[in-house]
Amino acid sequence: MSAFGITRASRAHAGFVAAIVHRVSGLALAIFLPLHFLSLGLAFEQEAFDGFIAWANNPLVKVSEALLVAALTVHFAGGLRLLAVEFFGLTRAQAVWIACAFAFGIGAGLLFLLRAF
């Protein structure tokens, strides 16, 4: 049995892939977000300015923060697809198209962002 019963031939279509990416990125956010909050909070508790600067320059934090941003953008795009279908009655093709467009746009932004590292 595959992980969480995801692999079935019947699931090889855009809607399912979009939904799984949405869920997995959401799960990743839910796992990383507490760490993000915790480290931010801790950094300031110790010594406000210096702590934050030291924290922001930690490579591990940089990488995990980048992943968090990636998960956020992907989840965001998936969420737009969902809202487009559920609230604006868009057809399937349109919804997928919009999701792709947003994913592309945000992905480009992300690339831009990563260059900063």
Binding site: I53, L80, L82, F112, A116
Partner: peptide
């Protein structure tokens, strides 16, 4: 989710400006 649409966009922009735009943490 609806509430967060503008929040996420703003947040992403802030991060991008912060990291790419050369603004220091200070």
């Amino acid at each position: 989710a609806f509430v967060m649409v503008p929040l996420v966009i703003t947040h992403l922009v802030v991060i991008m400006i912060a990291v790419h735009g050369g603004l220091s943490a200070e």
